[in-house]
Design a binder for these strands. Sequence first.
DNA 1: CCCAAAATCAACCATATGGTTGACCTTCCC
DNA 2: GGGAAGGTCAACCATATGGTTGATTTTGGG
Lengths: 109, 109
Amino acid sequence: MSNPIDLVFAALADPTRREILTMLLEDDMAVTDVAEPFEMSLAAISKHLHILTRAGLIAQEKRGRVKWCKLQMDAMKDTSLWMESFGQFECVNLDAFEKFLEDQTIQAK
Amino acid sequence: MSNPIDLVFAALADPTRREILTMLLEDDMAVTDVAEPFEMSLAAISKHLHILTRAGLIAQEKRGRVKWCKLQMDAMKDTSLWMESFGQFECVNLDAFEKFLEDQTIQAK
DNA sequence: CCCAAAATCAACCATATGGTTGACCTTCCC
DNA sequence: GGGAAGGTCAACCATATGGTTGATTTTGGG
């Protein structure tokens, strides 16, 4: 239950938390600012951030009375590798990956 | 909550279920055979299989009185792509991916 | 000094997991 | 036909999520 990979998957299973992670891609944010776009109490967001921290997906650092949240990509990377390695990275996945690269190129235009 | 990607992540958050998926990499299996290595009731495994089915990670087909479980790689692929695309597939991920390919090559020897 | 802002804590509630056991339904096979 | 194998269902229990509100703590600023 306290397995690191368990915690990462569990943390990623919630859309609010995935959205928070996406927001943090832009820049580090204070807890209040993270909470702002959501129709949810600050306390609820605080809990979500705790779950993300526990999973190692973000880190929180307090400066003054503001607590800053920043992404920690490593945890996600490990889990992503678990998924990729699943099935000896069979051809199907490779195809998907190439399609993905294609899509990215198109989007970048 | 019923978001497909939510269900996949939630399904993958349990070590028993991940182990079941790994077992199914080898071959399709009957429910009883899936349950055999676990120190857990058949009913518990049945529930896990239901969660995996709901997430689209496996499919179950009944032939006679035996219900066969088989992997469905697509759901995992999609979720894997979500993770890879996270962060516009930044360099860090690319490095990880190349390291992964390297490891695979070594293992294949 | 005092108030307001930034967060967390605590208590509470509803719902979902993760497991158990026991009853039940199907289907195979002698 | 009847028993046993293959599974699911139902009820139950403990614990974790996901949310609320209200109180509390800490810190910044006028």
